[in-house]
């Protein structure tokens, strides 16, 4: 399992992460980010890609 953490004080809800790992990140009806904090190892590449594209560098993979 991988643990994902988003620093919500940094996140500006740009939703770039959603394109890279749609099973983990989504924007809710109010356009705010929601995410699943625990993911299967098979998601690692997608989550790393999401980390890369987050403009606020708000996403962290906590091992």
């Amino acid at each position: 399992m991988i643990k994902v953490e988003v620093d919500m004080t940094k996140c500006q809800h740009y939703g770039q992460c959603v394109f890279e790992a749609p099973d983990i990140f989504r924007l809710n009806a109010d356009d705010k980010l929601e995410y699943t904090a625990e993911a299967d190892d098979s998601e690692r590449a997608n989550i790393e890609a999401a980390v890369d594209v987050c403009p606020m560098q708000a996403i962290r993979i906590v091992e």
Partner: peptide, 11 residues
């Protein structure tokens, strides 16, 4: 400006 879902849908 704002309206993320609309902007996103264009991608």
């Amino acid at each position: 400006i704002g309206m993320r879902s609309v902007v996103q849908s264009y991608r």
